[in-house]
């Protein structure tokens, strides 16, 4: 296995940066990390790849991401206001494909949420399609494959 440690370090740094923004509710900055056509996807079916023609838990284009963030921060959502903190651990980061135009990476995430004093844990595989730019990566696609995607989830008022 040929390893590009410099690229892996850059990808790892970016994934850690994005995770830190989301845990610390830096949502506006998070919105700036995306390409215009980028999609944030949380599927219900882990074997499905045709996300546009399938029902997902979330399939957000730029407008939906902007509205999702607005909902979380504008003080109008009682559930968003009840989310204490999330702490997510990103690990097992691996670069699957790399070219000048796109980098595809996969990692493991364990997200812990404290809500009404109760701890809820979300394990997931996450796939990133990143576009390298002079200023760093932009996310073109992020697919969050929750381990219990087809089970009965608790409601979610944060961003994976």
């Amino acid at each position: 296995m040929k390893s590009n440690t410099e690229l892996l370090a850059k990808v790892t740094e970016f994934i850690g940066y994005e995770a830190d923004l989301l845990d610390h509710k830096g949502y506006q900055e998070w919105l700036s990390l995306w390409t215009d056509s980028g999609l944030y996807i949380v599927p219900t079916d882990l074997n499905e790849t045709d996300y546009l023609n399938t029902l997902n838990l979330a399939l957000d284009d730029a407008d939906m991401r902007r509205m999702r963030v607005a909902r979380l921060i504008n003080g109008e959502s009682v559930s968003a206001d009840s989310v204490g903190y999330t702490v997510r651990m990103m690990s097992r980061i691996r670069v699957l494909e790399a070219s000048d135009d796109v980098v595809v990476a996969r990692c493991a995430m364990t997200l812990n949420e404290l809500r009404h004093g109760k701890l809820v844990t979300y394990p997931a595989n996450i796939e990133y399609r990143l576009v390298p730019t002079d200023e760093g990566f932009l996310v073109d696609r992020k697919v969050v494959k929750l381990l219990h995607a087809d089970g009965f989830l608790r409601t979610v008022s944060f961003i994976f």
Binding site: N53, A58, V78, T155
Partner: peptide
Amino acid sequence: NRKRMRLHEHFQGPMGFGTPDDGEA
């Protein structure tokens, strides 16, 4: 059908813009 699914995702389910607030209440 795609449009119907996108509208469903917008409000419904555990990550919709409506259901989590219902659940909280």
